[in-house]
Design a protein around this nucleic acid. Structure first.
Lengths: 213, 213
DNA sequence: GTCTATAAGAAGATAGAC
DNA sequence: GTCTATCTTCTTATAGAC
């Protein structure tokens, strides 16, 4: 049951606490409590409270880079990702967007980390960098590459791809902020997301697009 | 120079500090320092640290409700506001959006308050309510009403108004989050906003719209 | 209303036994 | 690696002089 190792459990529980109360709002004793050890024991695993925070940043950053290539955006190889969508239509765009949104929303660790970065960004330059990269720049770059490709393939109207990416992603970001603040409004947010992607498709997709290529 | 009154200056300086470090990251002594008084003097004006925080919430909430009717969205009387835009065209939509964005971004107190709410929202129900209302629900409702009206007047394509509102507002919100985290990227954000509104107009505005009504 | 002095408790961190 | 005990400093808040 506790086979995860105390050192990792400290990071997990600390993240859970930081994600709500922020770094300054959490005491070392609270973290230790959550792990079911006493405060001094915790110092056998990490040299200081700040070390725990830094370890979370480091762990989450490498986790992000790992998964960037899979489900997620990294702006590295958009054409590979678009391949999956090549024989796609409006329905699949809706599916892609919804899945992206739900991943962002429901991955427990990802959500906690996003909340923590949200809280810490203004006082911590590293948190700010990670926040902007992971939740703004990368998604826009990724979507932009996909849409650029769609436009070249005449699947989408030939407009500015980065702006289209913003039109596609920004509403998801907004609804994500809503859900992070009001989890009870998730159903409502999801329904807006579906409406959004549907209307986005109506607007941006070339009529009669099909299975070309 | 200090004719603002110590009581108000305490609120101002406290907000400046809370907006970066959060409630738990600021000490009463830091607030007192910023006001150039000693800690015990501060307690002659407010009974506790929490009282200062609550006073900020109360003050900003009433300030918000005041100005809601003027430049800003409140969802109360959209038709009155749209009146200003009635003889408007694409250029004026760009102007309206840019001004809205710049107001949000450059009002010093508004920005600090937004940052503070961003930090405090996950642990403080009141902060969460204010955050969601002021930066998500109200803007969407307001824009939605305007666009509903535009659609009825055949100025805009007859699509879902609330989704259109999301397409219009969400990119502003996203760029606002970017600027709050990275103020040095403001010029970039503003240029995206202009591109966004321009492309939004291309998409949503009925061609040859004019001065009807 | 502002100050000096100080109380009372919390918080980060260490010592050393087991 | 975990514990009890403890140290030191920080933090909120109060007492009381001016």
């Amino acid at each position: 049951m506790d086979k995860k190792g105390t050192k990792q459990r400290i990071l997990d529980e600390a993240l859970s606490l930081f994600a709500v109360h922020g770094y300054d709002g959490v005491t070392v004793a609270q973290i230790a409590d959550a792990v079911n050890i006493k405060t001094p024991s915790l110092y056998k695993h990490y040299g200081s409270k700040r070390d725990i925070f830094d370890a979370i940043l480091t762990e989450m950053e490498s986790r992000y880079k790992q998964q960037a290539g899979s489900l997620q955006m990294d702006g590295a190889d958009p054409e590979k990702d678009t391949g999956v969508l090549l024989n796609s239509s409006r329905e699949q765009l809706i599916d892609m967007g919804t899945k992206l949104f739900l991943y962002f929303l429901h991955d427990d660790v990802a959500q906690k980390f996003r909340r923590m970065l949200t809280i810490e960004q203004y006082k911590n330059p590293t948190a700010s960098e990670l926040y902007v990269e992971q939740y703004i720049d990368s998604p826009l770059l990724y979507q932009s590459s996909i849409f650029q490709y769609f436009m070249e393939q005449n699947i989408m109207l030939n407009l500015d791809a980065k702006t289209a990416a913003m039109h596609f992603y920004a509403p998801m970001f907004l609804m994500l902020c809503l859900c992070d603040s009001c989890p009870e409004r998730e159903a409502e947010a999801l329904s807006f997301i579906r409406l959004h992607i549907s209307q986005f498709s109506d607007i941006y997709l070339v009529e009669g697009e099909g299975e070309e290529v």
